[in-house]
Amino acid sequence: MAKIKLSERKIQELKEVCKSFNNEKGELINVLHKAQGLFGYLPAEVQEVIAKELNVSVAHVYGVVTFYSFFTMVPKGEHPISICLGTACYVRGAEKVLEEFKRILNVQVGETTSDGKFSLSCLRCVGACGLAPVVMVGEKVYGRVSPDGVKDIVAEYRS
């Protein structure tokens, strides 16, 4: 795990977050939620600071982070790719599309490519069922994506 060094200012902000919850052990989930909002993800160092502030073990914090799939320890890529796996998309082959993204980017769901460019995640229905299967890259929506089209989408952002 590559260790990032948090800036003093960021650490201060994080401590403020803990303080806003009175450094209560019982508020760990809420603190983590806010912290993820602040950093975009929850690197080890952030968890260590939180553990110290809330006076719980780092192992416990990590336990909670890994229990809820909402929390992530990997920074999102520059271009976060989300594939809808809602029913409509699923029946129209979203899984094959997902497989193709995994193959081309060489990452699993929840991971980020080593150059930091792309991260891959799945979504439940985004409400664009008419366009199924749907893929989102950042804010941009791609409809009726086929496995063959995946490499073109990726190429758009590679340059």
Binding site: A44, Q47, S57, A59, Y62, T66, F67
Partner: peptide, 15 residues
């Protein structure tokens, strides 16, 4: 601490 969930759940040190 207990980490992960479901089938992958085990007890392990932090990270």
């Amino acid at each position: 601490s207990a980490i992960n969930r479901g089938f992958m759940a085990v007890v392990a040190p932090a990270f």
